[in-house]
């Protein structure tokens, strides 16, 4: 991981501030924003992937069993996946 915006000196900046590491914003944790988290009852899951399609973060991935699950490092807890799931697999629960 490169230096953050608080550490970089002017000499270390790329020409014109160009960022040369594609997609390096994925280091940034947006999971902290969450006030509620998705919880899953995979018994009902059809593995259709609609939750993945509609996720604004693009943070829903398939786990080892092929079930779709949000990566809590990024998940902001919007609840779209829960709302759109056709078989009601996902329930939003308040973060402690």
């Amino acid at each position: 991981m490169g230096k953050s915006e608080n550490e970089l000196t002017w000499k270390e900046l790329e020409v014109g501030g160009i960022v040369t590491e594609p997609g390096n914003a994925s280091q940034y944790k947006t999971g902290d924003w969450r006030s509620q988290r998705p919880t899953y009852d995979f018994n009902k899951c059809l593995k259709c992937g609609i939750c993945q399609i509609y996720c604004p973060e693009g943070c829903v991935n398939q786990n080892n069993q092929g079930y779709f699950e949000a990566d809590l490092y990024y998940c902001k807890g919007c609840g779209i996946c829960s709302r759109e799931c056709p078989t009601f697999v996902i329930t939003m629960k308040e973060e402690e």
Partner: peptide, 9 residues
């Protein structure tokens, strides 16, 4: 790929 013209805090 590069990103040009990021915003600066």
């Amino acid at each position: 790929p590069v990103a040009m013209g990021d915003f600066a805090p």
